[in-house]
């Protein structure tokens, strides 16, 4: 066995036993890349030296979590997905007196604000509640701030229009120096909190769950567990939206979902053709 692979296993054990973070069901290839990236960033030379700091150095685990969690996204990434949410999903959600949405793995919050804008423009935001979760506290804090680099605003404006935005993206932020700050009114019905998909359980009855490009970092076992968690969190007829290249065909838990738009990975729980749920 490769020395590096032994070191990675020790790293996973150290994170688990010392800090209670379980990465053992992450997809191995990308986990290895990220751990090697941490070695570079922190100049530890070897994974073993990284492990020593994980075990002995107070506060170092925060940097490690930062390096191992879902990276930066963009506003209205894959605009056609947001267009489909606007056209196919929100009209159904409009029939509920109270709409609960779970953004799982919200990272720095770009998709949370995209969603809030979508709901605002559909006239549904007042009766919506967005639960935005991540296991990375630093990302959650950044998401709550809603401050992003101004250089991204131009791409995001284009995304916004392609997603069917009815106003101008610049109506939603104020620019200062090299940063944009999103209107804090977009946050009024958002609750940010720490939730770990690996270990935590159902916490709400959701009508829509967005979790894009998070499951790609999990192995089949953890993907299946997470999809089961989503299925159990959704009301009958509730929607799930994943990343456009994610593949859930091998997951037993996926049998509870039917396609709303397969190409865009929008699913519905307990729709026509779904097998009966065993809970």
């Amino acid at each position: 066995m490769d020395v590096e692979d032994i070191e990675i296993q020790l790293f996973v054990r150290a994170m688990q036993l010392r800090h209670g973070h379980d990465f053992s069901d992450y997809a191995p290839a990308s986990l290895k890349r990220r751990v090697l990236q941490l070695v570079q960033t922190h100049g530890t030379g070897t994974i073993s030296e990284l492990n020593r700091r994980v075990l002995h150095e107070e506060g170092f685990v925060g940097h490690v979590i930062q390096g191992l969690s879902v990276p930066v996204s963009e506003m209205f990434r894959d605009p056609q997905v947001f267009r489909a949410l606007r056209e196919k999903v929100l009209p159904v959600l409009a029939s509920y007196p109270q709409i609960n949405i779970w953004q799982a793995g919200c990272a720095q919050g770009q998709e949370v604000y995209s969603l809030a804008i979508l709901l605002e423009e559909a006239g549904l935001y007042e009766r919506s509640r967005i639960y935005a979760t991540d296991f990375n506290d630093a990302a959650l804090a950044a998401a709550g701030e809603g401050i992003y680099a101004a250089r991204d605003a131009r791409d995001w404006s284009r995304n916004y229009l392609e997603a069917g935005g009815t106003l101008s993206f610049s109506d939603y932020y104020s620019a200062r120096y090299d940063f944009i700050k999103l209107d804090k009114r977009l946050r009024r019905n958002v609750t940010f909190f720490n939730h770990n998909l690996v270990t935590d359980v159902v916490f709400c009855e959701a009508h829509l769950i967005l979790c894009r490009n998070v499951l790609i970092y999990f192995n089949n076992t953890l993907q299946d567990r997470t999809l089961g968690l989503f299925r159990d969190s959704l009301v009958r007829g509730g929607f799930l939206c994943l990343g456009t290249r994610e593949n859930i065909d091998f997951s037993p838990a996926a049998s509870g979902f039917t396609d709303v738009d397969h190409a865009l990975r929008i699913y519905q729980v307990g729709g026509i053709g779904a097998r009966p749920l065993t809970r």
């Binding site: 990308s30 990220r34 290249r245």
Partner: peptide, 21 residues
């Protein structure tokens, strides 16, 4: 390889994707 994702090979010869930087 699809656009917008890194394409990775797992040791058991399956494809995986990432949106890392």
């Amino acid at each position: 390889a699809p656009t917008g994702y890194h394409l990775l090979i797992e040791e058991d010869h399956y494809f995986s994707l990432s949106v890392d930087e």
